[in-house]
Simulated assay, not measured.
Amino acid sequence: MLYYAEPVSKLIEELSKLPGVGPKTAQRLAFFLLRQSRSDAVALARAIVDAHDKTKYCSSCMNLTERDPCRFCCDEQRDQSLICVVEDPRDVVAIEKTRDYHGLYHVLHGSLSPMEGIGPEQLKIKELMSRLSSPHLREVIVASNPTVEGEATAAYLARLIKPMGLKVTRIAHGLPVGGDLEYADQVTLLRALEGRREL
C-alpha cells in the first residue's frame, strides 16, 4: 500500500539505499528536498550525475580523479621515494590535511575481509605491486585503518613487499591528543606503548 505519491515513494526508496540512511531518515531527506526550489533540486541531481560520470580512477594510484593521472601523481615536487597505501580516497584527504606528507599515494578501495568476501583480488593490490619496481622507491607506508581488517591488510602487504627489498612501515597507533589514559582500551594502550619514541 502506497502512503505517498509514487514519485515521493520512489525518492524515499532511493535515498534509503544510501549508507547509514534508514527509512525514517530517507523520509526526512525526501521532504527536505521537496521543500527546496526546483533549481536547488536540479543542481543536486546534476552534481550527483557529474560526479558519477566525470570521476575515474587514476591509472597510477587508483585515487578518484577528474583527469588521469591525478594531481598527486603529476606533481614532480612530491617525494617519489615514498608511497603511502590507504584504504579509501577520503584517507588521502585526511593525510593531506596534515600538510606534512609529501610523497605519493596508492588507494586500495577497501581492506581484506574474508567474512565479507573481500580478498586481494577485490582490492587494488595488483596495481600497487606493479608500481613497486620504480628505481626511486625506497619505502611503502601502510596507512590502513586500525581495525582487524586493516591490520590483516597491513600484514598481507608487508609479506608481499618485504621480499622486494623495500622498507615497509606502518603508521603508529595510540592515544588521541587530549585523550585520557583511563578511558583508553587495552589494544590502544598497547599500540601507544609499542609506538613510543624518545623525547
Rank of each mutant, 00 (worst) to 15 (best):
V140N: 00
S133E: 14
E121W: 07
H109F: 05
S133C: 05
K124G: 00
V92F: 03
P120Y: 05
Q122I: 01
P120S: 06
E127Y: 03
D79Q: 13
G119F: 08
S113L: 05
Q122D: 09
I118E: 12
E149Q: 15
M129R: 02
I95G: 06
R138V: 09
R159E: 15
P120Q: 08
L160F: 11
S133T: 11
D100V: 13
E139Y: 05
I141H: 03
R138P: 08
S111E: 13
P114Q: 04
V140C: 02
V140L: 01
D91A: 04
H102Q: 15
V140F: 05
A94R: 10
R131D: 03
R159G: 10
V107T: 00
D91Q: 07
S81Q: 15
R99T: 12
V142W: 02
S113Y: 09
D75H: 04
P114Y: 06
L137G: 12
Y105A: 07
D88I: 01
I161G: 04
E127V: 02
S111N: 04
E96A: 08
Q80H: 12
L104I: 06
D100P: 06
L108C: 01
G117H: 13
R131N: 06
P146R: 10
P114D: 07
M115S: 13
L132G: 05
L82D: 08
N145S: 15
V107I: 03
V148G: 09
N145R: 13
R78L: 07
P135V: 09
L128H: 01
I141W: 00
R131M: 04
Y156L: 06
S113N: 15
A94D: 10
G110H: 01
T147L: 11
T98W: 13
Y101E: 12
G119I: 04
A154R: 00
I118Q: 04
E127D: 15
M115R: 13
D91W: 02
S130C: 06
E87L: 00
A155I: 13
R138D: 12
V92N: 00
A143Y: 02
K126Q: 14
E127I: 11
L128W: 00
H106F: 13
E96W: 04
L108F: 01
P89G: 02
V86M: 01
K124R: 15
